[in-house]
Amino acid sequence: MKLAPIFDPAARKSAPKPIQVDLQKAFLSITALWVVALVVVTILLALDMTNMQPLIVCVAGTVIGIMMLIWEHFHRWDYRRLGK
């Protein structure tokens, strides 16, 4: 019965164990993509083929990516300990 876990907590399956992910690689690759997009948009802006809005978005993405890399550096021990 699909409603059994709602009425009987003992019928629920146990939660899966969290997967340990290297956040530094994830944040670094996404930040690198934002930097590439920033270079492309800067070139397009220099050729007068776009406006400032995409440049602002790419700068924001790059800054957020750098902030996430800094956060990951200071919290690396915590999330690696929780993944074990």
Score class of each variant (00 low, 15 high):
F7I: 15
T62V: 11
R76C: 13
I19L: 05
K84W: 10
L55P: 01
N51F: 07
G83V: 05
S29Q: 07
Y79G: 04
F27Q: 02
M67A: 15
W34Y: 11
A10H: 00
A37F: 07
K17E: 14
D22F: 05
R80F: 05
P16N: 03
L33E: 08
V35G: 05
M52G: 11
V35A: 11
V57T: 09
M67S: 14
T50G: 02
L28P: 01
V36L: 12
V39R: 04
L55F: 14
T62N: 09
M1T: 15
M52D: 13
L28W: 07
R12N: 02
L47E: 10
D48E: 12
V63R: 08
V63H: 08
I30W: 09
Q24E: 14
N51Q: 10
L28I: 06
V59K: 00
V40H: 13
I66F: 15
R80V: 05
I19D: 00
Q20I: 10
S14Y: 08
A26N: 08
D22V: 07
A26H: 11
L82D: 03
W71T: 06
L55W: 11
C58Y: 01
P16A: 01
D78I: 01
G65E: 05
S14P: 06
G61M: 02
L55D: 05
R12E: 07
H73V: 00
L33H: 01
I6M: 10
P9A: 02
I19Y: 08
V40R: 12
V57W: 04
T42C: 11
L69V: 08
K13F: 09
I64H: 01
R76L: 12
G61F: 01
T62Y: 11
I66H: 07
M68E: 04
L38A: 13
I30R: 06
N51G: 13
E72I: 06
N51M: 04
V59W: 03
I6Q: 09
D48Y: 07
V36M: 12
H75C: 06
F74H: 14
L38N: 14
V40K: 14
D78M: 03
I64T: 08
H75P: 00
T50V: 15
S29R: 05
V59I: 15
L3N: 12
V57E: 07
Q24R: 15
L55A: 10
P5N: 06
I66W: 10
R81A: 12
E72C: 12
A37N: 09
I56D: 00
A26V: 09
I6E: 11
T42L: 14
G61I: 01
I64D: 00
C58V: 02
T42K: 08
I19K: 09
R12F: 00
A10W: 03
R80P: 02
I30D: 06
